[in-house]
Every structure is written in C-alpha cells, then in structure tokens.
Amino acid sequence: MSVVLNAAEIARALRRIAHEILEKNHGSSEVILLGIPTRGVVIAQRLAQEILGIENAAVALGTLDITMYRDDLRMRAPRPLTPTQLPKTGIDAKHVVLVDDVFFSGRTVRAALDALTELGRPKTVQLAVLIDRGHRELPIRADFVGKNIPTAKAESVKVNLSEIDGSDEVKIEGRSM
C-alpha cells in the first residue's frame, strides 16, 4: 500500500481544478457542480468552496445518484439509493460539471450521462475527477484531472476524505512491491 497524494497535494489539485473550471466556463454563473455519491459529493463541495474563495460568488451545487442507471446492477446485491438534489434552476442550458473521486472504466460517467438525459438538456457536460487511474472501457475522457496515476488493473485506488474517512489521503492498495 502506498500513498500517492497527501492532504496538501489534494488541496492543491482541487484548487487548480477550481481555477480550470472557472477559466473554461468564463466564470461560475452558468456552472452547476453535480457530485456523484459518495466521495464525489464531498469533492464537489470542496470545489464550490474554492470557487467561492476565488470568485467571491457561490456556484450552484447538487448531487446526482446514478445507481438506477448502472449497467452492473445484476452483478451484485441491490445498492441503496441516495438522494439526487438539483439546484432549483434545473440543469437546462447550464454547464454541468460532473464530479467524482476516481475515474476508472468510465461506466459510472456513462450512467451519469444517462441520468442527466432524464433531468434536462445542459448546454455542456464536463467531468472533473480527483484521480484518473486509466483502464477506460468506454470512449469517455475527463475535462479536469487532479492527478493521473498509472495503475495495474488488479490494484485499487482508495480516496480518503476527512469529511467521511477522518483524513485526506489517496492510496493504492494491492500493489506488489
């Protein structure tokens, strides 16, 4: 098990992503950050904090539960559902930034895109992730990446966030030394 990002590095990565989001979207007024549970929601909150610090303006924030749209539902016991909460304005004609912790096969993002289709028609959909570990199984790419970490497929990437796990840290587990 090895630590690939510590707390300070996570904070720096998120600050940079916040800047990039603002830059790409010419500010925050038309942006909606949608966190994908569980840790994507926390990361979206932190990005919103960063944007508030930079722009001195609140960015619209929400959560998007993608469970019902997953393509691997039948491979395990049913997963509990979590709330989907959208800003009152809805997502039509907005720049929706999906936020997740680890970007892996791309299937979660595919499910999120399906879920969004049911909710409205955003102007653009972008993707922000803390870690991109590769091994894509679908033609999907991220717009904003905290850190690219090459991994073997058998390894697992564990993102700890203080709000949920008590501390900030990204580790790789199952790596043979």
Binding site: L73, L86, E118
Partner: peptide, 20 residues
C-alpha cells in the same frame, strides 16, 4: 421505505422512467 423515499423524490421531479 428509505428506497421509496428516494424514488418518490425522483418521480416527483419529473415523470421519469428508469432503465433499472
């Protein structure tokens, strides 16, 4: 009941259909 709460919230927001 908790699952139904989430589903009723989603169903309220639009007349949606899930692919589940």
């Amino acid at each position: 009941l908790d699952t139904a709460v989430q589903l009723s919230a989603l169903s309220d927001s639009s007349n949606r259909k899930f692919p589940t």
